[in-house]
Design a binder for these strands. Structure first.
Lengths: 345, 345
DNA sequence: CTGTTAGCGCTTTCAT
DNA sequence: ATGAAAGCGCTAACAG
């Protein structure tokens, strides 16, 4: 009695079995909803558990079952609000399914070895990878050890699965919008490290333009030294460069490879007294909340975040156990027309 | 052989013990750097581990030791970039210490019961709580079960520890700056749900003004329905309201309770053709990256994020085991003067 | 329907 | 300096 209180020792199924007068096996079964247990016993067990304040020890369960109920998440730099939104959605949905999120990485750059090994050490049920650099490391490790992995918005690597927004199609839709808006010269803005995502977007954009007899006259690759990915700072620099172009050379429309870059571009253009969209149209890609602010009114292609996460989690469930196969789900993005691109010439 | 490959079974210390010709106990000791093991044996064990590609199973270790190496993190809505920055810093530092982050919550609002129980189920070594609403629930649970908890930027609850930026002092510093800038009328902007953090900031601000014979003439409480906390949208609304005030009533300076609100205020003021800081000065609090953008140049008090996280993690280490005590660490914020507040009248 | 018995992989006395 | 054995809390055969 005193001891129990003093030691704050964990309440185990053994405690319940004692109190309910059944074996621990029965307790386990009752608690896990095994239908073979009589209603009466089940009640007694549940009551006892309730009274004692029992909670399963997932560590113990996992040791036995091999599944931890943990999903690893690899995030890029939260400098890009997209990752924050992704995190929130992943946490929400995985919570609903009763699985928890272990953060493996959040930031730019590669992962360190010990961090990577957490995948094995904690017997993760799966991994969701949404950042560029660590993708291949994680893919290799998961592949080798049979841990399901799904890339969000990255090309599937090795035999991992992937779910992505249809980047190429999105690029095409934006090109189309700008063409219809009567723009005749185009620029594109992207970060130094071109992830597959960026390349696809560009490719879709460029090829659609080509089909209509246009091409991309200016291609700005700008980034911050410390973080050579798509970033506000990179967009800002590109914006300044665009503003400094001789007027006749200046593209009438610019597609930024991500919303965060587009926002940087817009700020820089305005800084230089250029008006968006009157003087120049700017479109982005991602659909982050910030783009919806009245001060930006960013026209963009929104990634179907919710669905992408749902499918990722489904995929993880499905491929766990079965031999991992490279399966790719492509979801169309949604064109969101606001005010940063001129509708008519 | 075939079986080993087919089953992809985990490499355990038993495998190592077989290969190295020692007992599993010795393997465990060698791997954990027990000094009593001879150098020769240790080498053999390490080599074998290396060759076999061994990784500890933390689940098994934890079951034995009671410590999981997992720290729970409760985050507010990543709508406020502050939480994204916090996340990144926490992940970085905990990674360095060899502990991993389990996300318990990310978003506005309370936590659901099952999520809360993850704290016990995974035997978390501790919890870091930085969001308002779930704080009391988490505190209660941790308190009751002896799990160390530290509130970041919240009042310590029950017997939990806390580390915070000195909010009151920060408020005072901002008030002082504005006074010296020659401002004579003041407004304050905050979200509907006033966390302790917000109240302290306001209190410091107001009391310093009072000491100099000023007071806050306007107090704007604005938020978004779905998310009644400090938010961009709330700041925006407050900004519009300020802009719509009769000119003579309009405060010369406004302090927003957070940077994200300050940014909303600035955007709205500009939308209404008011210039910041020429027509009105705006200051914020937090020091998020976004405020550093040239388009905002937000004058603010920066929270010493890095140090706050370091201390939190230290605190968790220290109080684990010992009877939890309410300990509060207050770290001064750093005044960052940029261009959103008039320096001289 | 329920109890008995083995472990899951690791650490840790207690011997030697 | 090393081994044998117990056990962390749970689940899953395998009996009845």
């Amino acid at each position: 009695m005193v001891k129990a209180l003093a030691q704050r020792s964990r309440v185990t199924i053994a405690d319940i079995s004692a109190r309910a007068g059944v074996s621990t096996a029965t307790v386990s079964r009752a608690l896990n909803g095994d239908t073979r247990i009589s209603a009466a016993t089940r009640r007694r067990v549940h009551d006892a558990a309730q009274v004692l304040g029992y909670t399963v020890d997932i560590l113990a369960r996992s040791l036995q079952s091999g599944r931890s109920g943990l999903v690893g998440l690899v995030l890029g730099s939260t400098d890009n609000p997209f990752y924050g939104e992704l995190l929130q959605e992943v946490v929400r949905q995985s919570g609903e399914r009763g699985t928890r999120i272990l953060i493996l990485h959040a930031g730019f750059g590669p992962m360190e070895r010990p961090t990577l090994e957490a995948i094995l050490q904690y017997r993760l049920d799966g991994c969701i990878v949404s950042s560029a650099e660590p993708a291949s490391q994680v893919a290799a490790l998961c592949e080798e050890h049979g841990v399901p992995a799904v890339m969000i918005n990255r090309l599937p690597m090795l035999r991992t699965a992937a779910v992505a927004c249809d980047n190429a199609a999105g690029g095409r839709v934006l090109a189309d919008l700008l063409c219809r808006g009567g723009h005749r010269s185009f620029g594109i803005v992207m970060g130094p490290v071109a992830a597959s995502t960026a390349r696809e977007r560009e490719q879709g954009f460029t090829s659609h333009l080509a089909e209509h007899g246009f091409n991309v006259s200016h291609r700005f690759i700008r980034g911050e030294d410390e973080m050579p990915v798509t970033s506000y700072g990179g967009g800002w620099q590109a914006g300044l460069d665009i503003a400094n172009l001789p007027v006749r050379e200046r593209p009438e429309a610019v597609m930024a490879i991500s919303d965060i870059m587009a926002i940087g571009v817009i700020d820089a253009l305005r800084q230089c007294a250029l008006r968006v969209p009157q003087d120049i149209s700017v479109v982005g890609f991602d659909g982050i909340r910030e783009g919806a602010r009245a001060s930006y009114g960013l026209t963009t292609v929104r990634q179907p975040l919710r669905q992408m996460v749902t499918w990722s989690l489904d995929l993880l469930d499905r491929i766990s156990g079965s031999s991992t196969q490279a399966e790719t789900l492509l979801i169309p993005g949604e064109l969101v027309i606001r005010s940063s691109a001129r509708p008519r010439c």
